[in-house]
Design a binder for these strands. Sequence first.
DNA 1: ACTGAACTTGAATGTTGACTCAAGTTTCAG
DNA 2: CTGAAACTTGAGTCAACATTCAAGTTCAGT
Lengths: 212, 212
Amino acid sequence: MAKATATLVTDKAPRTERGKRTLQKLLDAAAAEFGERGYHEASIHGITHRAGAALGTFYTYFDSKEQVFRALVEHMGRLTRQSIADRVAHAPDRITAERMGIEAFIEFARAHKNLYRIVMEAQFVAEDAYRDYYRIFASAYRQGLTAAEGRGEISPGPAEERAWALIGISVFLGMRYGVWAEDKTPAEVAAAAGDLIAHGLSPRPARGGEGA
Amino acid sequence: MAKATATLVTDKAPRTERGKRTLQKLLDAAAAEFGERGYHEASIHGITHRAGAALGTFYTYFDSKEQVFRALVEHMGRLTRQSIADRVAHAPDRITAERMGIEAFIEFARAHKNLYRIVMEAQFVAEDAYRDYYRIFASAYRQGLTAAEGRGEISPGPAEERAWALIGISVFLGMRYGVWAEDKTPAEVAAAAGDLIAHGLSPRPARGGEGA
DNA sequence: ACTGAACTTGAATGTTGACTCAAGTTTCAG
DNA sequence: CTGAAACTTGAGTCAACATTCAAGTTCAGT
């Protein structure tokens, strides 16, 4: 819990410089292998090969294939939250924060397609890790919404359902415009979604002149 | 394309009553096996065992494990679309249709957790089938939004991005309140989401009396 | 009844890949 | 320098299936 790469709890932690380097190479290799080939297509041989290590070395640092995978899911969770939080930190208000968050999320998905895929696939490989990932996300979101409601920045409403709905928007836009195709800029997509989140679909009363 | 269960194109179609029954038992068994154990944990033996058939019988009706899986994904696509479309058909306007669609989606997810999971997992087993599933959904959604915009039922805006965002909302609410836990009624969740979709998060001007 | 097509059966085949381990090499504290 | 702990190596073990197939059984039309 204290150390850098974390999640490697007990007896498998490296004790020498060489060991640390090898472990890091294996983690990077695992992220690439899982990201490119998916959990089941990925092989330990593939990981150690990418890392330039022998097959057996893998088991010096990990208990099993599933364990590295879980470690990577948690790692990515931290990374994503951090990345979004940083981008949203200076938002002037919650509505703006929503738009910025979506933009950041799409950009993050583009820049880390591998890790994005790993998280998605966790749903079927390590479901508890997957649920935790989104539960933590939803919990933070809920707090943000509640605080914003207190400040009068958003209309009152159920924070829980809103949080899950908003996460769904980000995830799907991230998938469609981040991972699948880059036919629109993140800013463009975020602007459209931001408007939807701010005002909804209801027709807005015409501004300015025309009375009727 | 014409027959009932479809997707079983050429030479594997059953020719007798007994054959039809066996095929149907295998399809049901496959849906259960894949739904409960996931694609990779599922085994052909598991499927034929559930169906009360011998191992080899599977290959009388299917070419491979992946092929049944794809057949099921497409089957579920049709089922989902149908189910939502039926429910939304009589909606008085688009905004109401959105709320009803979400409610229908959550209920559908609850009633068909297995099939829901199969579609999700398709992302990693048969990605093209998965993308098609959502592309068809998005395409229909886009048309619905454009038509509603023409009728003045919703504010003008980019139908494409809106469609994906709205699908994301349904999918995530379906996952959270349909599959993961049933701690809120579909109607309740749909009401909350419907309000978000209708009016967004922006604070609404106070109604009635207080002037300032 | 009869017969060929349709269907069923389950043992056998072949492959794949996670994980082990005994033998070697490198590191680093003392 | 030294030796024990840390680390590396890769051939070997083992179990788990997907898929095949030859032999048997049932069906449906005549």
